[in-house]
Amino acid sequence: MALAVCLLFDPATERRLRALWRRLEDAGIHTLASHTHGRHHPHLSYAVLRAWDLEAVREAVDALPDGGPVTLRCHGTVVFPRGRAALAPAVTADVSRRQESVTAALVATGADLHRNYAPGAWVPHVSVATRAPGAKLLAVVEAVADVLPMPLTVDRAAIIDSGTGQLWPLAAIP
């Protein structure tokens, strides 16, 4: 599977995102709530790795400065191939710099960074639907529109193995 460095949300934001997942699941649309092992957390990934040395990754990310909590604002939906849909948060220049620092630190460990997370290619997103066929995408967009604008408050970060759901909390928010 993959290893990701993720921003995680405060309890109120996580409740709102999980409620959106439930609404979509009730409409027959797959979300992270039912995807693979079912242990997914609402998150925004700074980086996704296809190959890595876990200890080297943990050391590299732990060495990055603490950027502190941040609030992002979502005003729309982004749709990716194969029926994947997500909230599209606006990010500040500071958050973009943080993402670039994280990816540079990870690449320096020899990790294989997924091409969609390379600086200049990163599309910040918070996954909502994992497999929505074309006919159901309208329902996804409508469900998201009903909760917009949505502030997302980041209050922690973690390294997460997407294959197992195992999470390693970070001491700081890079």
Rank of each mutant, 00 (worst) to 15 (best):
residue 23 R to S: 14
residue 23 R to A: 15
residue 24 L to Y: 10
residue 24 L to K: 02
residue 24 L to T: 02
residue 25 E to G: 04
residue 25 E to S: 06
residue 26 D to C: 03
residue 27 A to C: 02
residue 27 A to E: 05
residue 28 G to A: 04
residue 28 G to Y: 05
residue 29 I to K: 00
residue 30 H to F: 06
residue 30 H to E: 12
residue 30 H to R: 11
residue 33 A to E: 07
residue 35 H to P: 05
residue 36 T to S: 13
residue 36 T to D: 13
residue 37 H to F: 06
residue 40 H to P: 00
residue 40 H to M: 14
residue 42 P to D: 03
residue 43 H to C: 01
residue 43 H to K: 00
residue 46 Y to H: 09
residue 47 A to E: 00
residue 47 A to V: 01
residue 47 A to K: 01
residue 48 V to T: 15
residue 49 L to Y: 05
residue 49 L to T: 07
residue 49 L to A: 06
residue 50 R to Q: 14
residue 51 A to F: 00
residue 51 A to N: 09
residue 53 D to V: 06
residue 53 D to W: 07
residue 54 L to V: 10
residue 58 R to L: 13
residue 58 R to V: 15
residue 59 E to D: 15
residue 60 A to S: 09
residue 60 A to Y: 04
residue 60 A to E: 04
residue 61 V to Q: 04
residue 61 V to P: 07
residue 62 D to Q: 12
residue 62 D to S: 13
residue 63 A to S: 14
residue 63 A to D: 10
residue 63 A to N: 11
residue 64 L to T: 09
residue 65 P to A: 10
residue 65 P to N: 11
residue 67 G to A: 15
residue 67 G to R: 15
residue 68 G to Q: 13
residue 69 P to N: 03
residue 70 V to S: 12
residue 71 T to M: 08
residue 71 T to P: 02
residue 73 R to M: 10
residue 73 R to H: 11
residue 75 H to P: 00
residue 76 G to L: 06
residue 76 G to D: 09
residue 77 T to L: 03
residue 77 T to D: 11
residue 79 V to T: 14
residue 79 V to A: 15
residue 79 V to P: 01
